[in-house]
Amino acid sequence: MAGRADESGALSAPGERPVRWAPEERDTLPGVGWGWQAVTGALVLVLVTLHMIANHFVVKGGLRDYQEVIAYITNPVILPLETLFLVVVSWHGLLGLRAVIFDFGLSVRAERIVTRVLLGVWVVTVLYGLTLLAILVTHP
């Protein structure tokens, strides 16, 4: 794209700070940015409401004991919904954390690193959650 600096700052004179990308060009991943925070936020809103009602409002005693957790999580309707909740809520949360970190005014390079690290955290979070779900579903 014309007028845009590459990573080495090719459009800048030697020793000069690289040309900063326009804000709308900073996001290097799909699913990142304000619009997605609203979309994932809407999904989280539905799923967290379901999660709170199912786990803390309708259950006798307000919390599920082991057998109740297994019965809940092996329900064929609940399992995909809770899995989706895990994927979407962690994305929404880490995307929010990214926005907070970006508020410190980082360089484009630092922002990219933050984005990649948080993407890694998200992958680990989802894998951890899926593992836990798999254990609960297969060893009741």
């Binding site: 949360g93 959650g129 836990l132 254990i135 609960l136």
Partner: peptide, 19 residues
């Protein structure tokens, strides 16, 4: 948001006790 994110990770860690 930061508070709820902190809780989310606390919650995920606690859930490992189910295993």
């Amino acid at each position: 948001g930061l508070g709820v994110l902190f809780y989310l990770y606390l919650h995920l860690i606690v859930l490992s006790q189910l295993a």
